[in-house]
Protein backbone atom coordinates (compact mmCIF):
# COMPACT_ATOMS: atom_id res chain seq x y z
CA UNK A 1 0.00 0.00 0.00
CA UNK A 2 1.46 3.41 -0.87
CA UNK A 3 1.68 6.12 1.77
CA UNK A 4 -1.16 8.25 0.41
CA UNK A 5 -3.52 5.32 0.40
CA UNK A 6 -2.47 4.40 3.92
CA UNK A 7 -2.82 8.02 5.11
CA UNK A 8 -6.28 8.32 3.59
CA UNK A 9 -7.46 5.02 4.98
CA UNK A 10 -6.41 6.01 8.48
CA UNK A 11 -8.48 9.20 8.23
CA UNK A 12 -11.47 7.34 6.82
CA UNK A 13 -11.27 4.69 9.50
CA UNK A 14 -10.85 7.06 12.46
CA UNK A 15 -13.43 9.64 11.39
CA UNK A 16 -15.79 7.50 9.30
CA UNK A 17 -15.62 9.91 6.38
CA UNK A 18 -15.49 9.35 2.63
CA UNK A 19 -12.31 9.86 0.65
CA UNK A 20 -13.73 12.79 -1.31
CA UNK A 21 -14.15 14.77 1.94
CA UNK A 22 -10.56 14.40 3.06
CA UNK A 23 -8.92 17.32 1.24
CA UNK A 24 -10.90 19.92 3.15
CA UNK A 25 -10.89 18.13 6.50
CA UNK A 26 -9.77 20.25 9.46
CA UNK A 27 -9.39 19.72 13.17
CA UNK A 28 -12.76 20.33 14.84
CA UNK A 29 -14.32 20.72 11.40
CA UNK A 30 -16.43 17.63 12.04
CA UNK A 31 -17.76 16.21 15.31
CA UNK A 32 -15.54 13.15 15.08
CA UNK A 33 -12.33 15.17 14.86
CA UNK A 34 -12.44 16.48 18.42
CA UNK A 35 -9.53 16.34 20.85
CA UNK A 36 -10.04 12.66 21.63
CA UNK A 37 -10.50 11.83 17.94
CA UNK A 38 -7.29 13.75 17.31
CA UNK A 39 -5.35 11.48 19.67
CA UNK A 40 -6.84 8.42 17.99
CA UNK A 41 -5.77 9.76 14.62
CA UNK A 42 -2.23 10.41 15.83
CA UNK A 43 -2.01 6.95 17.40
CA UNK A 44 -3.13 5.33 14.13
CA UNK A 45 -0.65 7.38 12.11
CA UNK A 46 2.19 6.59 14.51
CA UNK A 47 1.37 2.93 14.29
CA UNK A 48 0.81 2.94 10.55
CA UNK A 49 4.03 4.75 9.70
CA UNK A 50 6.06 3.51 12.67
CA UNK A 51 6.90 6.97 13.98
CA UNK A 52 6.53 8.86 17.26
CA UNK A 53 5.38 12.42 16.78
CA UNK A 54 6.54 15.30 18.96
CA UNK A 55 3.88 17.00 21.03
CA UNK A 56 4.42 20.27 19.11
CA UNK A 57 3.65 18.49 15.84
CA UNK A 58 0.57 16.85 17.33
CA UNK A 59 -0.65 20.31 18.26
CA UNK A 60 0.24 21.69 14.81
CA UNK A 61 -1.61 18.88 13.05
CA UNK A 62 -4.57 21.09 12.21
CA UNK A 63 -5.81 19.58 8.97
CA UNK A 64 -5.53 16.72 6.53
CA UNK A 65 -3.21 18.84 4.35
CA UNK A 66 -1.09 20.05 7.27
CA UNK A 67 -0.59 16.45 8.33
CA UNK A 68 0.99 15.59 4.99
CA UNK A 69 3.45 18.44 5.49
CA UNK A 70 4.27 17.43 9.07
CA UNK A 71 4.88 13.79 8.22
CA UNK A 72 7.79 14.85 6.02
CA UNK A 73 9.69 15.63 9.24
CA UNK A 74 9.47 11.93 10.01
CA UNK A 75 10.64 10.94 6.55
CA UNK A 76 7.17 9.93 5.48
CA UNK A 77 6.32 11.22 2.01
CA UNK A 78 2.60 11.08 1.44
Amino acid sequence: MNNLKKYNEIFMKVFSVEEKALEELEYQGIDEWDSVGHMELIAELEDGFDIMMDTDDIIDFSSYKKGIELLKKYEVEV
Binding site: V36, M39, E40, I42, A43, E44, E46, D47, M52, T55
Partner: peptide, 10 residues
Amino acid sequence: TQILSKKMLR
Protein backbone atom coordinates in the same frame (compact mmCIF):
# COMPACT_ATOMS: atom_id res chain seq x y z
CA THR B 1 0.88 8.74 30.04
CA GLN B 2 0.62 11.24 27.20
CA ILE B 3 2.36 8.82 24.84
CA LEU B 4 0.90 5.52 26.04
CA SER B 5 -2.67 6.72 26.41
CA LYS B 6 -2.83 7.37 22.67
CA LYS B 7 -2.46 3.64 22.22
CA MET B 8 -4.79 2.83 25.11
CA LEU B 9 -7.56 4.87 23.48
CA ARG B 10 -7.73 2.28 20.74
